[in-house]
Design a protein around this nucleic acid. Structure first.
Lengths: 212, 212
DNA sequence: TAGAGGTTGGGCCTCCAGACCCATGGGTAG
DNA sequence: CTACCCATGGGTCTGGAGGCCCAACCTCTA
């Protein structure tokens, strides 16, 4: 689980991004700051692996805040305007990534994973960076969830959609009720849960069940 | 359920806001556009009650798009810079609300509910508007969820956290297992579900279980 | 003051969920 | 060719989930 902190003076953006990142199965937003100083304050009490910072913030902008982050917390800079001079400013400040706010969420998510893994996106060429991000496109699931088979995933998806009865699950998947129960038993073990209610909750949390 | 559409060329913002609004129990984002023309196209195939439009968009900005919305779909304009002249531009275009991107998410959520209810926030004084938003602060829950009692809500919260066993629920709430089962039976009826798995899913969907 | 609704419990019953065994066939990797 | 894993399915058993009925007690309100 990657702990992420967000710093942006536009609250609507910060809260939206926070919700979106929390929707990822492998990241968790642990704090939202509206300024550089507030970010430092939050980080003093709450560790985070990655920090998403807006370059344009009133009252001492994000660049200064990055300098004081320390080695444990790496920064990704986002900006409204993706100019080359802003990119170099970010790089000089020690940021590990730089993105325009026009990029898709999946790109930022991949960047967060890559940076949390120790990569410095700003030391790469555009092509190298895109290739690297591609490999981080999909969420690193929990060890338990990662070992789920395709069929088990199917069952979980249905379960998270509210299909909780064994009979209905069997009907939808065209298999016997006994097989459904066997699959569920395996799922319980892999996810370390004890019944289908907890399995459904875990499935939603892990993002296995696609919301629409 | 209020159907919301979002138009913003900053994809990161649009997707983040989309996720955040989908987190609300009484709203659902049915489309995300990156430009005015794309918004019109989406609306042609998919109705929506409220539309959140960025005023600054390349290639024919949001203002023009609002003109063509029609009576069913009402617009709320958001902007990076909350200038007075932008507000009047939005008002003249027929928008029903105007907000800086610096406002908290809850304010936008309240505005969406108010506008969906037929209010025109731009025809009010600041004070009147704030009062009105205050009354729309909390989500209008589904009829079923709305009739849940405080105790039933507590049970649901625990359930959505993964406390699925009757015994554990009873222990946490300091009541007998029988009472837990009675409460659950009432919850099932009110939410129109048939077991605790479906109840937990509904609780998460309705936002009854606070994520953290 | 009487009634309504919420919370707390009881009893009883049926049936299914989950735990623990097992076997077979198909695909894949060594 | 031989294992191994997966999907499929069987059997059995016990505990608990959910259905249905009921009753105290409390608070609030008409």
């Amino acid at each position: 689980m990657i702990r992420v902190m967000i710093a942006d003076d536009h609250q609507l953006f910060a809260e939206g991004l926070s919700q979106a990142l929390n929707g990822l199965p492998d990241a968790r937003v642990v704090g939202v700051a509206a300024s550089g100083p507030e970010l430092r304050e939050l980080l003093a009490n709450q560790p985070a692996e990655v920090c998403v910072v807006d370059i344009e913030m009133p009252g001492g902008d994000g660049i200064e805040a990055i300098h004081t982050l320390g080695a444990r917390t790496r920064a990704i800079v986002v900006s409204m305007h993706a100019g080359e001079e802003q990119r170099t400013r970010a790089a000089r400040a020690g940021a590990k990534g730089f993105f325009s706010k026009g990029v898709p969420l999946t790109t930022l998510a991949a960047a967060i994973r890559a940076v949390a893994d120790g990569h410095d996106l700003l030391s790469l060429t555009d092509e190298e960076r895109d290739d690297l991000l591609e490999t981080y496109r999909e969420a690193q699931l929990d060890p338990g969830a990662a070992s789920l088979t395709a069929r088990e995933r199917e069952i979980l998806q249905q379960l998270a959609l509210g299909i909780s009865a064994t009979e209905e699950l069997a009907d939808r998947l065209y298999i016997s009720q006994k097989t459904v129960k066997n699959h569920l038993a395996n799922i319980f073990q892999k996810l370390a849960v004890s019944d289908r209610t907890q399995a459904a909750i875990e499935a939603i949390r892990l993002g296995i069940a696609k919301p629409n």
